[in-house]
C-alpha cells in the first residue's frame, strides 16, 4: 500500500504537471482538490483517465470521482479494492 501511495504521488505530479510540487509535499490525507493541491475540474477528468490507463479501472459515473479522489489514501484504497486481477 505504501508503495502504491508513493507511486500515485509521482504519477499525479507528472500527469497533472504539478511542476513546483515534490512527492514529499503531499501527505496521504491532504485534500487533493480545493485548498489542498488546488486541483480543478480538468484535473479530476485527467485522474479518471489515469485510473483507466495505469490501473485498468474504469469509473462509469464521474460523480463517483469526488469521493475516490479526496486524498492519496482514498485513491490508494479504491485502487487496491478495484484493480482487475
Amino acid at each position: 500500500m505504501e508503495k502504491l501511495k508513493a507511486e500515485l504521488k509521482e504519477r499525479i505530479i507528472e500527469n497533472l504537471n504539478l511542476e513546483d510540487i515534490e512527492v514529499s509535499d503531499i501527505n496521504d490525507n491532504d485534500p487533493l482538490f480545493g485548498e489542498g493541491l488546488g486541483l480543478d475540474s480538468i484535473d479530476a477528468l485527467e485522474l479518471i483517465v489515469m485510473l483507466d490507463k495505469d490501473y485498468g479501472i474504469k469509473i462509469a459515473d464521474p460523480k463517483e470521482g469526488k469521493a475516490i479522489f479526496e486524498s492519496i489514501n482514498t485513491m490508494a484504497t479504491y485502487i487496491s479494492e478495484n484493480k482487475p486481477a
Binding site: L16, N17, I42, D43, L45, E46, V49, D52, K53
Partner: peptide, 9 residues
C-alpha cells in the same frame, strides 16, 4: 486509446 481532457481542452 487514452484521449486526455487536459490536452483536448
Amino acid at each position: 486509446y487514452f484521449p486526455s481532457p487536459s490536452i483536448f481542452v
